[in-house]
Structure formats: structure tokens, C-alpha cells
Design a protein around this nucleic acid. Structure first.
Lengths: 358, 358
DNA sequence: ATGAAAGCGCTAACAG
DNA sequence: CTGTTAGCGCTTTCAT
């Protein structure tokens, strides 16, 4: 079933069918109605491939994320998809799993499908691949880590803001030994977070020396706490490069009977939905997934609309800020991290969490 | 840049370029090399749209899930995507968020893009939409809930197996007041789980009367425990229709100082990755996301390969089974759910979890 | 306002 | 083994 069949049954030309379907205003209402009637009766759906071929625009956006299984991303994908359907776009999703081969094949596939633009939320990617895209003038939107050239929109993230708040919150709670569990350092975003931590600590005269590196996954968080506990000078608070890491830290703490927040304060980063449901609920730095997705999509839309005339303000920014929940508390003076409580206490009598300070 | 340009520069016909690119064996190695050289030099990527148009096959599969933000699905999407790239397929993802409008638009878009098949993992969908797909002879794969007709593959899930194990595990731990937090009952999968629970309880002579309905999300789990606690005859164990619900239940328990598993045993369903990292780690019924995705993809591949000759065994099955972790324990004789422990105890001295029985 | 026809980039007969 | 050519289904001039 194709446009010709519709034309035949409606006794008009294919051009008219095309016009009617695309709601070209000049077409006679009579004819238009006739066409639509046949279309509905036969259940005709135009072939997007053919349309894309002639139009030269596919109405497909590529979306590259680093790991769809990291709860940070599904929210983004959902928002992105919502916007896509609203705007009659399709989205081609790739979860690279940090695999360079995967990134490469993903870029190739997107070029082959002639996407109208791609949003790269992978926080780190080969220059050469980007070159491929740029070479074909595919509009690009980066988070954090795009080259600073025309035709590429960059969404800068203000990590410093949220991380400073987190550090100062901890310091206000009288923590002085504050550790940081970093993410994989080849990720620019992880690097940026670590630097923000260092700066924030230095700023208030605390040595940023308790840094251990994780992998932005729960396993890495568990491992990290293990390492931290081997230190002679154990931290009383730990700030994590993302929420998954924090969940791992809390899980390991549970295994070791380290109570949170009583014995150890922990702060995450990202504010994934789950953060509200961890035990205890996680104090974390919010980086709105919804906002991020919205900005990324809008940026893409702008890029494709602009079509390269006077380049608009291809700069976007997202800020971060601390959200207080119940995983932080006042540092206990002179208390060693893993020493069991003198007289055991039921959970019911746990110390007031810092959130009571709000 | 198109195939003609390559042909010109390689001094061959477009047909030869096409053959070389598609590795037709009959083409002269000399020419082939010449073609590939030009292709690589110019960075030529064939236009998939045009190819799809003439081939009549898009090499795109649709994947419809109910909520990408439910951690059950990202794993499936990842596996599905892995298989897709391996087999040179693209995937068009839709997360319906249980919105009928969304399902409809998603089906429309998939038809317009001429997908080669679609996997519906949404556990419940309008008949009429399915009819649209069937009408166009789009190969379909369902989980749970497909009509039993030719051209539609069904993946049946054996809920009974895992749920029976869960119920019997709880019963063996001397629980007699076992509650069930169901999912949204318009979902066939949620319905099936509830029925399996009822059957399993009845089987061992326990009344399946403590049933409350949630929404398969964490909020619903919290709400459910609240309801359960209003009952005069409170449960000592609760089986949840999915893991997110269980996480909600545990979170509410935390708020109410109900200790898990000491005061309340909880069992989930799905075995999402997170289940290993909850506090305490969640005993749950496993329904392998990886297997499910593999089966679904393979089924799709079969359907499109078959092309409707002697219909193969378009039946697939996935079984479920209990995995023991630390969220269940022996029922305490005659203990009321929320009564605080007589002499408070530190977490360190908590009761041996059921997992020690393994 | 409508129709005839060219062409988007590719593949596959068919002919040589 | 290679080239010529006719479409795949659609949009869009260009006439009418």
C-alpha cells in the first residue's frame, strides 16, 4: 500500500495526496477530505524512509549515553523521548558501556541512518569519532566535554556549586576528615568533580588528601570504603562522585556494621530518583536529569533550525546544588570509624540526622 | 557524497560499488580494492534510508517497554541493543509510561518507520493497536500476554515456580501471616503474579487474604506497608510483586523503625541488579532480564527469517526462581510487628538472616 | 488548485 | 565479471 494506491482510490494525483497529508493549505478542502477518508479507511501510513530520502532530513536524533543501566540515564532517556515524540522526532539510542568499539560503531550507524543531530552524554569520547560527525556537519550537543567550535553546542555543568555546598555542609557538621570517592578518571566529568572537591576543601583549609577512585558503580563504592577503612586516619564523612558509588559505600558500611549517618556521613552526586529511597535517604548533590535532557534536546533543535546562519548563543549551563536528606550527621568527636557502640542501641534511638537542621 | 561519486572516482559503475560494499563474492578483487580505497578516503557511508527503501527491509526493530525508569528495563534494553548491533539492527525504543496515547503514537511511528518487527515488553496493551501491527504483518513478540495466533511469538513466564518457592521459603521460616503487595492489576503480569501467590498460599493451607495493591513503584511500596500496618492482624512477611515495591516497603519500614528482617521479612520479584545492594540485600524471585531480552530478540530474528513458512515453535518460556539474600528471617513467635525490641540492640547483633540457611 | 514527471540514493535484474 | 537501467515511495518543481 503506497501513496499511489491512495491517489487511485481517491481519484486524485499522488501530488495531491502528498499535499493533503502534509496539510498544505492550498489544497481544496473537498479533495483533502476525500483523501483523508481513503487514508483512514485503508489505514495508510506514509513511508518515512522514502520521505526522508527526498527531504534530506530523517527526523531522527542520536542519543549516546555511557550506560543505560546507570539509573542516572533512564530519566534522561525518558525526558528526551518525551520531547522527541512531541516534536515528531525519533531517537536512536546507544549505550556505549565505555567501550570504544561501541562508540565507533554507534557513530557509524548514526551517520548511516543520517541522523539530524546527536546528543553525546557520555562524558568522554574519542576525538576522531567527533571528527567524523563534524565532517558531515551533523549538529552536535555535548555535555561537559565538547570542543569549543562552531556547530557544536556545549552544556557546561557547574559542579563546583553543588560540591562546595556538600563540602561546607560536612564541614559545618564538624567533619574534618572528608574523603572523596572519585569516578573513572578518564571521564572528564569524574575528573571535574574531583577537582571541584579538591578546590572546595582547600578553600576552607582542609587537606583534600583522602581520595580514592571508584568506577561510578556500586561495586566500586563498596571497594572504596574497604580501602578507606584500611587507612590509619579514617574519614568520618565521604563524598561520592555519583549516587551509585554512594549506594555501594552504604552497602559496605552495612556489612561492616558502620552506621550511617551515626558513624559515617555519606553524600552522593546526581540525585537519582532512588536517592530518596535508600536507607537512609541519601543527601546528595542534585544535577537535574530532567533539565539536562531538556537542554540537550532544545540545543539540538536549535542547531538544526539555525542551519548555520548567525550562530546563536550555543552555550548552555546547568548548575548543581545540595539536597539534604538523612545520610549525614554531626561528626562524633574522637570516635573511630568502626568501633562498635559501647552499649548497643536499637535503630530507633539513632542520632538525629543532619536533615533536622534544615 | 553518494554512490555515484564513489563510482566516478573509482572509475567503475554504481552497481560495482554497491556489490563491493555489500561484499558480493563475484566482484573482481582488484576493483573491489579500488572501490574500498575511495570509500575509505572519502569517508563514504551508504545511506541506509535509500537502501531500506529498495530492500523493503529497514533493519530496525521496535522495542516497547512500560517504563524505562524502572530498573528492570534498562538491563533489557542494554542486552537488546547489544544483540542488535551484533546483528546489524537498529532499535527504536519507546517507554510508554502506561499511557495509552503514548502506546498509540509509538505504534504509529514504528509502522511509519517500517520496522522489521517489534518486541512488546509492556505487559499489557490495547488490542486495537496490536491489530494495526498484525494487519501489516509486522512480526511481533510478546511477553506474557500475546494473542495465541500465528505470526506472533509469545514468551510465557512461569511465575508460579518462583513465587511458590518464595512462599514456601517464608512458610518454612514459620511465617503464617504472609502479605502480598500486588502491582497495577490492569497489567497481566501483575495479575499473574498475584494469582500465583494465591495458589501458592492455598497449596499449603494458608489463607491468601493479606493482599494490598501497589503500583510497581517505590511510592506504592511505602503506601502498601502503611496500609498493612493499619490491619489488626499484621503480617510478619511480605512478598512484593516487584523489586521496586520491595524497596519502597523497606524504606517505609525504616521510617517506622521496623527492622528487616528481624521484625518483618520481605521478598521481592524481578531480581534487578540493585537487589544485591539494598539494605539489607533483598531476597527476591529472579526473572532474568538478560535471558528475557535474549529470547525476545532471538524470537524476532526467527520471525523475520521464517517469513511465514512452516511456522516454527513460536513458543518460548522463561522460568523464575528464588534467590536468597538477607531480607528474610525466622518469624518471631507471637511478636507484634511494630513493638520495639525490649532491650535495644545494636545492628551488629541482629538476628541471623535466613540466608545463613542456604 | 491540481497533475505530470523528475529525482532523492540505493539495489537488482538484465544484458553484454 | 561489469555496466545500464528500472524502480523502491515520496515530495516538489513546473506546467496547466
Amino acid at each position: 500500500m503506497d501513496i499511489r494506491e491512495i491517489a487511485r482510490k481517491a481519484k486524485v494525483s499522488t501530488a495531491t495526496v502528498s499535499r493533503a497529508i502534509n496539510r498544505v493549505p492550498t489544497v481544496d478542502p473537498q479533495l483533502s477530505k476525500r483523501v483523508w477518508k481513503v487514508v483512514d479507511e485503508l489505514g495508510y501510513y506514509p513511508n518515512t524512509q522514502a520521505r526522508a530520502l527526498v527531504l534530506g532530513r530523517s527526523r531522527i536524533f542520536g542519543l549516546i549515553v555511557s550506560e543505560i543501566t546507570n539509573p542516572f540515564f533512564p530519566e534522561i532517556v525518558q525526558t528526551f523521548e518525551n520531547l522527541a515524540v512531541e516534536n515528531n522526532y525519533e531517537i536512536l539510542l546507544t549505550s556505549t558501556v565505555h567501550d570504544p568499539k561501541r562508540m565507533e560503531s554507534s557513530v557509524r550507524r548514526m551517520i548511516e541512518r543520517r541522523v539530524d543531530g546527536v546528543a553525546i552524554l557520555t562524558f568522554g569520547m574519542e576525538e576522531s569519532l567527533i571528527e567524523h560527525l563534524r565532517f558531515r556537519k551533523v549538529p552536535l550537543v555535548f555535555v561537559d566535554v565538547g570542543p569549543d567550535v562552531a556547530g557544536i553546542a556545549n552544556i557546561r555543568i557547574n559542579y563546583q556549586n553543588g560540591i562546595r555546598q556538600a563540602v561546607q555542609h560536612l564541614a559545618a557538621l564538624r567533619h574534618t576528615r572528608i574523603a572523596f570517592v572519585a569516578g573513572p578518571l578518564q571521564l572528564k566529568s569524574a575528573m571535574a568533580r574531583r577537582e571541584a572537591f579538591k578546590a572546595s576543601m582547600t578553600e576552607i583549609g582542609l587537606p583534600p588528601d583522602l581520595i580514592v577512585v571508584g568506577d561510578h558503580r556500586m561495586e566500586g563504592g563498596m571497594q572504596a570504603l574497604l580501602e578507606l577503612n584500611r587507612l590509619s586516619n579514617r574519614p568520618t564523612a565521604v563524598l561520592c562522585s555519583n549516587d551509585m558509588t554512594a549506594i555501594g559505600v552504604m552497602r559496605e558500611a552495612y556489612d561492616q556494621n558502620i552506621r550511617i549517618p551515626d558513624d559515617l556521613s555519606v553524600v552522593g552526586f546526581d540525585d537519582i530518583r532512588l536517592a530518596e529511597f535508600t536507607i537512609p535517604p541519601l543527601t546528595t548533590v542534585q544535577m537535574s536529569q530532567h533539565e539536562l535532557a531538556k537542554i540537550a534536546f532544545q540545543a539540538l533543535l536549535n542547531e538544526v533550525a539555525c542551519e548555520s546562519p548567525g550562530h546563536e548563543h550555543h552555550k548552555y549551563e546547568l548548575t548543581t546544588s545540595l539536597v539534604l536528606r538523612r545520610s549525614t550527621a554531626l561528626a562524633r568527636a574522637g570516635r573511630s570509624l568502626t568501633m562498635p557502640p559501647k552499649g548497643g542501641r536499637a535503630r530507633g534511638s539513632r542520632k538525629t540526622p543532619a536533615s533536622a537542621l534544615r
